[in-house]
Amino acid sequence: MAELETRELEYFVAVAEELHFGRAATRLAIAQPALSKAIRRLESRLGVKLLERSSRHVALTSAGEALLHHGRHALNAVSAAAEKARRAGDQHAHLRLVIKPGGDANLLSGILAAYAGRPDARQVDILFGGATDRADHVRDGRADVALLYLPFDDMTGLDHETLTVEGRVAILPPDHRLASRSEVTLADLAQETLPRWRGVRWTGAPEAVPGPEVTDAAEAMHMIRLGRTIAILPRSLAQPPHPDLVYRPVIDAPHSELVLAWAQDDRRRLVASFVSAAVDAAGAT
């Protein structure tokens, strides 16, 4: 089979993520006809159809879904290789930690203090990522370590240490049928509508109905207030509580884990020292 070029993968991933040739062309800063031609050429070389097209609709085929999944990782690997090579030669590199705003379960201050007390400590740069892209920051070299939540984040290519394990809470509008309960179960939530988090595999309650797609907690809270959905989140991500919503523990929901993750092939002392400090600090809380 013909080898793929990085540029071809970039073109395809843009179209597959946007599901619109015009938006993908704008994102790539190329002409739409050239992009369409490049995708047709790629399909011809691979011998498979990647996209179903009509005048109003673009959808991925099963082959396209597979290429999107693996293509993202391939592009991340290429970017990470260059970045890691550069940083490996920098003896004064800062350590870069990517987090979701509010996504540290109140552990970050203790972790940073524990690391700062180590003789080999470096400056720590805090980067803020979105609800679903923090793992990619590590895979493509933009960050050295990330605070992630299991089972929500994609851990492909990453190692991790668990910092804390916590329960989940249901977030409900105040007029919801379950709002008067002190706690709820997964069975109570059967047939409820739960949001689909963009870029995250479905982690809703069994028998729940996939609802509107959201990209972050603010969007989810807005949809809950409108009565379009409810949500089940790790307890720490439900803080601080919104005054117009009701929070109830889901007593039999699988626990979530806050983990510190790094690239599987990253054996730098810089990273190992920070991981060790984080585990020590989390264990002391």
Rank of each mutant, 00 (worst) to 15 (best):
V250G: 04
E18D: 07
A220L: 11
R72F: 02
A81M: 00
V13C: 01
R96Q: 11
R23S: 11
Q239I: 10
D159T: 13
I171S: 05
E161I: 07
S36N: 04
D216A: 14
E207G: 02
T156R: 14
R201G: 13
G71M: 09
A190F: 02
V275D: 06
L51G: 01
A116M: 10
V259T: 12
L237E: 14
R196P: 08
G47P: 03
A59Y: 02
F12M: 01
L42M: 05
T203D: 12
A88W: 10
R269M: 13
F12R: 01
E257T: 05
D280H: 13
D216H: 15
G199M: 08
R228N: 10
R96M: 11
L147C: 06
A179F: 08
L68F: 05
S62A: 07
P234Y: 08
R181F: 03
L186G: 09
A131C: 12
H20E: 15
L46Q: 14
Y149Q: 13
L233M: 12
L28W: 00
V259A: 08
T164K: 07
R139Q: 03
V279E: 13
K100H: 10
L60M: 01
P173K: 02
L148R: 06
L226S: 14
F21S: 05
R56L: 08
A135T: 01
H255Y: 12
F152P: 10
A263T: 05
P241C: 04
L50E: 08
D188R: 08
R56Q: 04
L147N: 04
G22N: 14
R267G: 09
P210S: 00
H73A: 02
Y11A: 03
R228L: 10
K49H: 07
P206E: 06
S182E: 15
R122F: 14
I171N: 04
Q264W: 11
V165A: 10
Q264S: 11
G103V: 09
D216Q: 13
H20L: 06
A31H: 11
V78D: 03
R53D: 00
V200K: 14
L19A: 10
Q123F: 15
A261Q: 07
A66Y: 00
E65G: 04
D216Y: 13
R7Q: 13
A278T: 11
E17Q: 15
H92Q: 12
A31L: 07
G167R: 09
R139M: 03
E43T: 02
N106F: 11
L9F: 00
E3G: 02
R177Q: 01
